[in-house]
């Protein structure tokens, strides 16, 4: 690897920000689960169908897979290199007072998210793509019923919500970190980015966490 530390960070930032962008699209889709009554099922399934057929969406989805893989690989490379920068550890370490815990534990949070992602892909993406889902009355694959079934398990909802908490902390540090890596240095804009970051993370994570709770208790 001849890339500089800063270049590697730029790849982390760009892939991370792309994933942030994807989360918005993903949440918009999921919000259709909140539509009351049978319209919800129809709309959600139709939307899923639309996404899986569209060539642009296909390209984006490949970028998405690549982003996830690159983000993980760069994270591993950076973490390994960082571990080599201080081989003799402190005997007595209270540096935790100097920074936020989640900023120091992005790797841990990321690992949690990665495991979540594997489960998430297996439960929905894999079944949708390669499994044999029954069709709904409009001839779309009935992802809606699958989601409602999965979310009827309380433990799954709890795990899901907890993972969204992890996502929140990962996002909040990741978002600011990405902005800094890309070079947002002016104090005024940094303030705006801070506000935007908080709003984004709260909306995304609360939104994703609310959906399974809603589905579990009301559908």
């Amino acid at each position: 690897m001849t890339q500089s530390t800063l270049t590697k960070k730029i790849w982390m930032a760009l892939t991370g920000l792309f994933l942030c962008f994807f989360l918005i699209i993903h949440l918009l889709g999921n919000l259709q689960l909140l539509i009351p009554g049978p319209a919800s099922q129809q709309q959600f399934n139709a939307y899923s169908q639309l996404l899986s057929g569209n060539i642009i969406i296909k390209i984006i989805s490949y970028i998405l897979y690549a982003s996830i893989i690159a983000h993980v690989i760069y994270a591993i490379i950076i973490t390994m290199q960082n571990a080599r920068s201080r081989k003799v550890k402190y005997k007595y370490d209270k540096r935790g007072n100097l920074s936020k815990w989640y900023s120091r534990n992005m790797g841990l949070l990321g690992t949690i998210l990665f495991i979540f992602l594997v489960i998430h892909f297996r439960d929905f993406w894999y079944v949708y793509k390669f499994g044999s889902l029954p069709l709904d009355e409009h001839g779309h694959k009935d992802l809606y019923t699958l989601v409602v079934t999965v979310y009827s398990e309380l433990w799954y909802v709890i795990v899901y919500v907890l993972c969204m908490v992890a996502l929140f902390y990962h996002l909040i540090h990741g978002f600011f970190s990405a902005a800094r890596t890309l070079g947002a240095y002016h104090p005024k804009y940094v303030r705006w980015i801070k506000a935007l970051g908080w709003a984004y993370c709260i909306v995304i994570c609360a939104g994703f966490a609310f959906i399974p709770v809603y589905v579990h208790f009301l559908k």
Binding site: S4, K8, I78, T181
Partner: peptide, 22 residues
């Protein structure tokens, strides 16, 4: 300067901001 900083074996900045606090 960035290339020299890397050559010296310092780690990546992960923006924890502990440096500013210290």
């Amino acid at each position: 300067m960035v290339s020299q900083m890397d050559a010296e074996g310092f780690g990546h900045c992960t923006n924890t901001e502990a440096c500013e606090a210290a």
